Simulated scan of single mutants.
Amino acid sequence: MSVLAYFAAALAEIAGCFSFWAWLRLDRSPWWLVPGIASLCLFAYLLTLVDLQHAGRTYAAYGGVYILSSLAWLWLAEGVRPDRWDSIGATVCLIGAAIIVWAPRGG
């Protein structure tokens, strides 16, 4: 469930942020902000579904998923294929996220 929540949250955050990008950088209508704000609210809710005890760790681990999802957005929505440096960077971030989530912690 946590992995699904992370990827759904990433999609919601990217879509919400893109609505602001479209409005301010692509000269789209301010009406783009309405679904964008709703999407950002959904993003915040979805992160509460992640099964980690502390919010800070939830957000830190989310960073790796966000980076991977952003590169997918770059490729699928913007038509720019990520290069090897993007892939290496995303892999490093996902390894870091996995360490944060699954590290053995006492107490």
Results as ranks from 00 to 15, higher is better:
50 V>E: 03
89 G>H: 07
56 G>R: 04
56 G>Q: 02
92 V>Q: 11
8 A>H: 12
106 G>V: 04
16 G>R: 00
77 A>M: 11
14 I>A: 06
65 V>F: 15
43 F>P: 15
91 T>E: 02
99 I>Q: 04
94 L>G: 05
67 I>Q: 10
95 I>M: 08
8 A>C: 12
12 A>L: 05
9 A>K: 00
64 G>P: 01
50 V>C: 09
78 E>A: 07
77 A>Y: 06
13 E>S: 06
46 L>G: 02
12 A>F: 12
96 G>M: 01
19 S>G: 12
62 Y>F: 15
106 G>Y: 03
74 L>A: 09
83 D>A: 10
37 I>F: 11
48 T>M: 11
92 V>I: 14
59 Y>V: 13
41 C>W: 15
24 L>E: 09
64 G>L: 04
85 W>M: 13
53 Q>I: 06
42 L>K: 06
48 T>N: 15
69 S>N: 05
2 S>P: 03
56 G>V: 02
2 S>K: 00
5 A>D: 11
44 A>D: 15
103 A>M: 05
96 G>R: 02
105 R>P: 00
2 S>F: 00
22 A>L: 12
65 V>A: 11
61 A>P: 01
57 R>G: 08
22 A>F: 08
22 A>N: 10
28 R>N: 10
34 V>P: 10
89 G>Y: 01
13 E>W: 02
60 A>R: 13
15 A>F: 15
98 A>L: 07
102 W>F: 09
13 E>V: 09
71 L>G: 05
76 L>H: 08
50 V>P: 03
49 L>G: 10
46 L>Y: 06
61 A>V: 07
55 A>E: 15
6 Y>W: 10
31 W>V: 09
18 F>D: 13
98 A>F: 03
60 A>G: 12
23 W>F: 15
70 S>T: 12
74 L>W: 01
66 Y>Q: 14
31 W>N: 10
106 G>A: 03
17 C>Q: 11
6 Y>G: 08
68 L>G: 03
88 I>V: 15
76 L>E: 06
18 F>R: 08
37 I>V: 11
21 W>S: 03
42 L>R: 04
71 L>C: 11
77 A>R: 05
2 S>E: 07
34 V>N: 08
83 D>Q: 12
63 G>W: 01
50 V>R: 00
80 V>M: 06
74 L>C: 09
11 L>H: 13
93 C>D: 04
86 D>E: 10
39 S>E: 05
70 S>P: 07
33 L>K: 05
49 L>T: 08
12 A>K: 03
33 L>A: 08
52 L>S: 02
55 A>G: 10
68 L>Y: 07
3 V>R: 12
44 A>T: 15
6 Y>P: 01
107 G>V: 00
58 T>G: 12
46 L>P: 09
64 G>M: 01
90 A>H: 02
